[in-house]
Design a protein around this nucleic acid. Structure first.
Length: 560
RNA sequence: GGGCCCGUGGCUUAGCUAGGACAUAGCACCGGGCUUCUAACCCGGGGGUCGCGGGUUCGAAUCCCGCCGGGCCCGCCA
């Protein structure tokens, strides 16, 4: 696949440079290779060499071109256009891509690390809203991408059971009735009510603090109240995640790190750094020498622990149990996560790779569970699903209701996932119903539809025993094969840089390439060898589309 | 006030980490294509001071500095 082609270009270029006596640094992409509209891979390394050699880039490029090997394997030809060196894929390479794609054996990379990805980790105080699921979708897509790249993955949910918000939930559940609605929504109601009550009765804050204190002290009645409230809310949250095909492999309660003594160990370890001080009755870590203006509080005056300390213990545990730690966090965690990294460094513990996503807000402003100001993921799923049902009913009026319901369900979940994942994480967004309900080109149904078309052709065709790949020379055929070949490159880059949106872009391009082929290259209508060759390409495309959809967590529908 | 992030056609957006050959797509708009493998599709068209101003460079959407606009954060909350 593409990485093999690229490796050959790199090696050829390196040897040509050496033969010509040119030296380039060993920095990343020192060969100045890039994908280009003019070639499958282009190098502008001549520009880099020009100043020190005091020669014109074009003449340097020509010399390098002369020194390139006479024979290639996956490279078909190399041309020199002015200062640029352009490399093109060989027919042999395209045939190899096709063969691997048909055999379905090229969709997993060679990475071997064990990675723990923590995502969602929403407080169990209400349902997931459209901001939370940006975390879930980015996290779950990264889990799938890393898995594709070859890694062993564990998706974890970190449960904040010791925070004040959970104490408020318990207080609310003690004073108000839980309505008979979806569990997480019922919890939100009492949580919101508790907060409202606190406005006129400030003593509630002290009662909540007392709940925290008792929980940390191990009071059994408090413990059972908190645990049941958490589990209750979580069951609703899981239901929502399920609809988006998002699953966690394990759950870790922050209280677990207090109970097993890890929090104390971490604090003891931080005390060894000599940077801790007692101030105003609380244990603090002075990070001013590391650029933080405020001290990090490690233990409250009343002796209870804080989120950051428990999180340090959790990360210490993660570091000991995997090769790569990935955290998905909202933009409000930027400061705290850099403090966390600094503190971990002080203890000599590997720091996590933190993927920060910017906020999702409503046209009316930012969301808040506490104030009941949010659009829940459930609402969005319901609305999108009903719109999808109308759409599929309009387009496939003769299909059974069961079929249409099934399609609508997966179109809805896919559309929401794609709508979220297609935007780069560092872009703040405003939730937009119109965009969420758009099922056209820049959306999941566009890709699902391409897949369904490929499946439809294959259903009507015989098995392909042999085929002659050399017949696939048309522009749309070649473009499609090249796009299929890019899969491994896209996965590797996305896995390395933790940028799931690049896969969304690839998915759109792949579907587009298939749709163009579909429009201009009749398959079932073609005869003999051409029919077989095109069928082979359809099968390769179907496999590529399936792998891409699966990695995005979007259901691949054989008919829609 | 300080820190981090963002600012690309009317709207949404890729490219920015590793500066290079005409700046990506979608929506909306205009026009064309279903007796042909599912038209949730395909083709063509118009539409851009890449926020503004400096700088570095042979070359800047991309790097540096300043400014403007927006978001997030600066709790013994999480």
């Amino acid at each position: 696949m593409f990485l093999d082609f690229m490796r050959e270009v790199e090696l050829s270029l390196l040897s040509a440079l050496e033969r010509s006596g040119f030296k380039v640094g060993m920095s990343l992409n020192n060969l100045e290779l890039d994908r280009s509209p003019h070639a499958d891979l282009a190098s502008s390394v001549a520009f880099r060499l020009a100043p020190e050699l005091k020669r014109k880039p074009a003449s340097i490029a020509a010399e390098i071109h002369q020194a390139l090997p006479a024979e290639f394997w996956f490279v078909g030809r190399a041309e020199c256009i002015g200062p640029y060196l352009n490399f093109f894929m060989s027919l042999r390479f395209l045939n190899e891509v096709l063969e691997q794609a048909i055999a379905d054996n090229c969709w997993f990379g060679g990475l071997k690390e064990k990675v723990i990805v923590e995502h969602t980790s929403a407080n169990p105080d209400g349902p997931l809203h459209v901001g939370h699921i940006r975390n879930s979708v980015i996290g779950d897509t990264l889990v799938r991408i890393l898995h594709r790249a070859g890694c062993t993955i564990e998706a974890q949910y970190y449960i904040n059971d010791m925070g004040r918000q959970e104490a408020m939930v318990v207080w609310g559940a003690d004073h108000f009735r839980l309505e008979n609605i979806k569990n997480d929504h019922a919890i939100a109601q009492v949580y919101i009510a508790a907060h409202k009550a606190m406005e006129s009765q400030p003593e509630i804050k002290r009662e909540a603090d007392e709940i925290i204190r008792q929980y940390e002290a191990g009071d059994s009645e408090t413990e059972s109240k908190i645990k049941s409230a958490v589990k209750f809310a979580l069951s609703g949250i899981e239901e929502t995640l399920q609809r988006l095909d998002i699953h966690h492999d394990s759950y870790h309660w922050e209280s677990e790190f207090v109970r097993n003594g890890d929090v104390d160990k971490v604090i003891a370890k931080l005390e060894e750094t000599g940077l801790t001080i007692w101030k105003d009755g609380a244990l603090q870590l002075d990070l001013t020498s590391h650029g933080f203006e405020k001290n990090m509080i490690l233990r409250r005056t009343d002796g209870t622990s804080l989120y950051i300390t428990r999180d340090l213990a959790y990360h210490r545990w993660k570091a000991a149990n995997c090769d790569r730690i990935v955290d998905i966090l909202g933009a409000d965690h930027k400061l705290i996560s850099s403090q966390l990294k600094t503190a971990l460094n002080l203890m000599g513990i590997r720091e996590p790779e933190v993927v920060i996503f910017e906020f999702v807000s409503l046209p009316t402003g930012s969301m808040s569970t506490r104030r009941g100001k949010f659009i829940s993921a459930d609402e969005v799923l319901d609305e999108v699903e009903s719109r999808a049902f109308e759409e599929v009913s309009k387009r496939r009026p003769n299909e059974s209701e069961e079929f249409r319901r099934g399609v609508a369900k997966y179109v809805a979940s896919g559309a929401i996932r794609y709508d979220i994942v297609k935007v780069s994480a560092d872009k703040a967004t405003t939730f937009d119903w119109r965009q969420a309900l758009d099922f056209e080109k820049l959306s999941a149904p566009f890709i699902q539809y391409s897949y369904a078309r490929a499946c439809s052709i294959l259903r009507k065709a015989e098995n392909i025993d042999t085929y002659n790949p050399d017949l696939l020379k048309g522009h749309d055929e070649v473009a499609l094969i090249k796009k299929i070949a890019e899969f491994d490159l896209v996965i590797e880059l996305a896995a390395r840089e933790l940028k799931p949106h690049t896969l969304a872009t690839y998915a759109r391009e792949l579907a587009e390439a298939f749709n163009q082929f579909y429009r201009y290259c009749p398959v079932l209508e073609s005869r003999d060898d051409l029919r077989l060759a095109r069928l082979a390409l359809v099968k390769a495309s179907r496999n590529a589309l399936r792998a891409t959809l699966e990695t995005l967590g979007i259901q691949a529908l054989e008919a829609m």
